[in-house]
Simulated assay, not measured.
Amino acid sequence: MSEETTMGREFEIVREYETEAAPEQVWQAVTTGTAAWLWPMEFEPREGGRAAGGGVITAWDPPHRLTSRVEDPEGIGGMPQTLNVLDHLIEPREGGGAWVRYVHSGIFTGDWDDQYDGASRHTDFYLHTLRQYLTYFTGLAAVHSDVQGPAASMKPGSFAAAVRALGVEDAAEGDTVRVDLPGTGPVDAVLDFRNEHFAGLRTGDAMYRFFGRDAWGGPVGIALHRFGPDAAASREEAQEAWRSWLEGVYA
């Protein structure tokens, strides 16, 4: 094992994007509305306050700047990563809306190239989902669910089977498709994101995110962001329906 692998190596992922949402709406999404596009996170609203994952807030300037930092020499969240810094810079855009600069930085240990590739590609998908939320659901509270596929879905190339099972293998990004959603039934949905590793479906009251983490040694996964009035009451039912669906795909 090389010294670089043992000690780690710094990384930085930078993305800039614009949105029609106001800076205050972006701020809400990245502080109290994370369940709508990422996963539920809590922040103690002050500099020096607690951040998600056992971190600390190093910048809290609503609605302009949010920075959090997590450091653990033993690894963060079971990942070979010893430092994780997330920074959102939000500025008003001339004519309305907001401009955002997002920076994810830190230190990876282990296979740096693989981790960087995975983190970079996930960043694009997560920020796309954030913009979808800001465009179609901004201000709405979400019920988040995360469902992981069985061990069989970890085999490289497994994600294609989930895409086929959804019936969207021939659809293009932006198409409206008819899909039979587990626990919901047939609905019209927009295929708002599609590449070899990820797919996103958006309906009138939910966003479904499909992750081909088999490319980086993990299982195929699904994140549900549901905004309907019955979403909380049916959370466990929805999770079980999608879990059974994944098990069927990879049986």
Rank of each mutant, 00 (worst) to 15 (best):
V143I: 05
A119Y: 13
D146H: 12
G139Q: 10
Y133S: 10
H128V: 03
L127Q: 04
Y126K: 15
G118R: 14
A141K: 08
T176K: 11
E169Y: 09
D117I: 14
G183A: 05
Y116C: 01
T129R: 15
P150T: 11
D114K: 15
A165Q: 08
G139E: 07
Q132E: 11
V163L: 00
E169A: 15
G183N: 02
R164H: 11
N195G: 05
A189C: 14
F137Y: 12
Y126F: 07
D188N: 15
L127G: 10
R164G: 01
L127E: 06
G157W: 08
R194I: 01
V147Q: 03
H128S: 06
A161C: 01
A151S: 10
D188C: 09
R178T: 10
V147T: 07
Y136H: 15
D192G: 04
T135P: 00
A151G: 05
V168Y: 00
A160Q: 11
D180C: 06
R121W: 09
A119V: 03
T176M: 07
F137Q: 12
F137P: 11
Q115S: 11
V147E: 00
T184R: 12
F125I: 02
V147I: 12
T138Y: 08
S158T: 06
V168T: 02
K155R: 15
R164M: 07
L130M: 14
D180F: 02
V179M: 04
Y126Q: 09
R164F: 03
T129C: 09
G174K: 06
A119E: 02
S145K: 03
T129S: 14
T123Y: 06
V147H: 03
A160I: 12
V163Y: 07
F125K: 13
D170E: 14
F125C: 13
D175A: 02
A151M: 08
H122W: 05
H122F: 12
P150R: 13
G157P: 10
N195I: 02
G157R: 13
R121G: 07
D180G: 05
E169T: 09
G157D: 05
T176F: 07
V143C: 02
A165Y: 07
Y133W: 12
M154Y: 14
T123C: 05
G183T: 08
L191W: 10
A165C: 11
G167R: 02
Q115T: 06
V147Y: 03
V179K: 04
L166H: 01
D114T: 15
P186N: 06
E169N: 14
D124Q: 14
A151H: 05
G157V: 11
T123P: 00
L134D: 11
A172I: 06
